[in-house]
């Protein structure tokens, strides 16, 4: 069990998202920064898709009622364990009764806390992701509150784990000037050549209207060649809508499933984490890329997870595979794990 001592600004339970129900108007939701979320799960020895905590801007304080292996990734919220600083992008063991506390994000916007076994809330339509607007998933469909008690899933007997820090070269660099790759379309023909040129050559500033649903940007006005409205159709992750005001809106995890504005392009999946970690006031440049480049970036991202998993497992012991004993010698308690070696 994990008790939420302080909830932070917006802490929700997220996973890979609620796929398969967009035809019924159900948004996908899920972790905003999939790289940080997936890396946290790998470090915690979890299978892909385990639910984790997503914190926004100001982190939460958790009390662990039982010992656990946990991992912290994403925005640097200056975590402390019982008052002692702990490394971001790392896995660590916590003892029963420990308090893990996160502060304001010194860098980035969203931090992830994974626990071995995953966060256990009842899945809704196959996912534990919280969609707060629809009051679906997570803890009663809402952000976490002080006093909430959240269960931990059973760790797999084959789960590998050990406290370790991610090598520096795998920790993504965050800055306040962001370049993200975009595939043009599907409604490129709704914009003038000049409008396209403006979009790909200007800097845009993330406005205050930036949340899990979408990010509205301010900057040079993008010119439409015809009316900005289309007959409503489906909105994919990263879709960039441009309403009549000429400012781009990038659709994020909690986006509505359909929309009625022309879409100038789509942010490629492997670059979306940069926006998830951006804050109002940060500047964004949209870089045109080809479908081949986008697919290559996806392939590279996936092979990174394979490398990470292999690295995390190397030298680790299966956490549930051995027999555990507790014994006292001269008044001091020891925990001993015994495993068969073949």
């Amino acid at each position: 069990m994990i008790t939420i001592v302080k909830p932070g600004l917006l802490t929700t339970i997220q996973d890979e998202g609620r796929w398969g129900y967009q035809a019924y108007g159900m948004p996908v939701s899920g972790a905003m920064d999939r790289y940080a979320y997936r890396t946290a799960n790998i470090l915690a020895g979890n299978a892909a898709g385990a639910a984790a905590f997503e914190m926004t801007m100001l982190g939460a304080t958790y009390r662990f009622e039982t010992e656990a292996l946990i991992a912290i990734c994403g925005a640097d919220m200056q975590a402390t364990l019982n008052g002692e600083p702990v490394s971001n992008w790392s896995a660590l063991s916590v003892q029963a009764g420990s308090e893990l506390s996160f502060q304001f994000a010194a860098q980035g916007c969203r931090a992830y806390l994974a626990v071995q076994g995953g966060v256990d809330v009842p899945p809704v339509l196959g996912s534990r992701a919280t969609y707060t607007r629809g009051q679906v998933g997570g803890k009663d469909g809402r952000a976490l509150k002080a006093g909430d008690v959240i269960a931990r899933g059973q760790a797999s007997a084959h789960a590998f784990c050990q406290p370790k820090c991610l090598p520096a070269e795998w920790i993504p660099a965050l800055g306040d000037q962001i370049a993200i790759r975009v595939l043009a379309g599907p409604q490129g023909d709704y914009f003038t050549e000049g409008g396209m040129e403006t979009f790909f050559s200007s800097q845009y500033v993330i406005s205050d209207e930036a949340d899990r649903m979408g990010y509205r940007m301010d900057g040079a006005k993008i010119e439409h060649s015809k009316k900005p409205d289309i007959v409503s159709d489906a909105l994919c992750l990263g879709a960039i809508q441009v309403p009549g005001h000429g400012m781009p809106i990038v659709m994020m995890a909690d986006r509505q499933t359909t929309g009625g504005y022309a879409k100038i392009g789509t942010v490629i999946g492997p670059d979306l984490w940069k926006l998830a970690q951006a804050k109002p006031g940060d500047t964004v440049r949209f870089i045109r890329c080809t479908d081949e480049e986008a697919v290559e970036a996806l392939r590279a991202e996936n092979s990174r997870y394979e490398q990470l998993a292999a690295w995390a497992a190397a030298g680790s012991q299966p956490s549930g595979g051995g027999k555990r004993y507790q014994m006292k010698i001269n008044g001091v308690s020891y925990k001993i794990t015994v495993e068969a070696i073949n």
């Binding site: 379309g185 599907p186 007959v231 489906a234 994919c236």
Partner: peptide
């Protein structure tokens, strides 16, 4: 048939609500 990111494509059958 239009592109919607590296994982999406859109098939348009017309422009009208019909």
């Amino acid at each position: 048939i239009l592109a919607a990111g590296e994982q999406g494509l859109v098939i348009e059958f017309g422009e009208a609500i019909d």
